[in-house]
Design a protein around this nucleic acid. Structure first.
Lengths: 211, 211
DNA sequence: TACATAGCATAGCTGTGCTATGTTTTGGTG
DNA sequence: CACCAAAACATAGCACAGCTATGCTATGTA
């Protein structure tokens, strides 16, 4: 017997290639099927089963990829001396990500929200929680403010607007309502109205161009 | 020749039966396929093509049904002397509808938001617009308030919260944040904070039980 | 060098939406 | 009332979906 034999190992590059091709096909509106996905690559249909266990697993991995990209984008927001500005900037980045990859954004919230690593979604929210917490410590929000709740509320506002834009019912300019809604939320949480307006205006960089 | 002959007519009951069966299958999490849909009925697969032109048309009709049900629910909110309470009540009804039919709600905003009658979606929003307009005329909001914008913002807040709950990321109790968000929005639109809180509290009947 | 193992390629399975075709039903018309 | 065009209908079969079964091949350790 040869007890410790592990034989041939799988190549991580194949997995990456399939995910990126799927993301690209999503962007170019090509129908993503088992066969169309592997066509154009050097791998066969079985690769999808080896690396993802099937098409469902591939979609799950694609949702994961969406949260990874979102996390990367949020990480680029460097905290400043103004936590309210920062929270606004994070929400802006959230909207920008959704508009840059509208189909991927839709897939992310598909079906049962089934992810490979559920922590990934929490991690992205954590960026907002941190900014909310810093705002509370800086005295911008009331002392009894729950950072997680404020972050969740900001997220809900952003998601509501951008998902209605991404799925069709509302035209893109509707996103301009976002600063007003954020100002309303932050002010209701205790921030000074005038100061809040300034912070939100600074954090709101409408760099929401499509690709 | 017989120029004006129209021959056999289709039975509206068949259409209704298929739609209601589809809605029921959605609720019971049964997979809706062409064959599974007509199974259990007295009609054959061709009926789906004569009445809907195909499965896509059936889904479109199902989205329409979703908006019809929503409209029915919103119509049950009778205007009172307090337009801010009314707008809150409308949003509450919106949430209740989404929670009672979470899968149908998700289907409503699927894909390209393709409806048989796009007016139906506008009609449901119109309930909110009317309440906003009455609030403006009653002097609760600033005189330069745009009722359509306020209605849209209320909708976005509600949709953001309830869609995140319906698709999984947020637990159901998160909906309790809704009154706070609405109060923030209405106050930012000009309503008196204390009066607003009262109105929202009166309009917010947490009859959000599932079925 | 030998070989157990896991990746891999191919072919074929079931189930999907859809279409083609022949049959039946219907309702306006002479 | 009989006629018959037209539309609804039932059935069978098509292309394509995801998936599985089955050998073949490559590989890393003993």
């Amino acid at each position: 017997m040869y007890p410790g034999v592990v034989a041939r190992r799988r190549d991580p590059a194949v997995r990456t290639q399939l995910i990126e091709r799927a993301a690209h096909m999503l962007r170019t509106r090509e129908p993503i099927t088992l066969r169309s996905l592997v066509a154009g690559t050097s791998v066969s249909t079985m690769a999808v089963y080896t690396y993802f266990g099937g098409m469902d697993g591939m979609w799950k991995a694609l949702r994961q990829e969406g949260f990874t990209r979102l996390g990367t984008r949020l990480a680029q927001i460097t905290p400043s001396a103004d936590p309210v500005r920062d929270l606004t900037a994070l929400v802006t980045a959230y909207l920008g990500n959704a508009l840059d990859h509208p189909d991927l954004y839709r897939v992310m919230f598909d079906a049962n929200f089934d992810l490979e690593d559920a922590q990934a979604a929490d991690d992205t929210l954590e960026y907002l929680v941190q900014a909310a917490e810093r705002g509370r410590r800086a005295g911008r929000y009331r002392a009894d403010t729950n950072p997680l709740e404020l972050a969740t509320q900001s997220w809900a506002v952003a998601h509501g607007l951008v998902s209605l834009v991404a799925t069709g019912p509302l035209p893109r300019p509707t996103l301009a309502h976002c600063p007003l809604l954020l100002t309303a939320l932050f002010t209701a949480t205790g921030d000074d109205p005038d100061r809040c307006r300034q912070s939100v205006e600074q954090g709101w960089q409408p760099g929401l161009a499509d690709d």
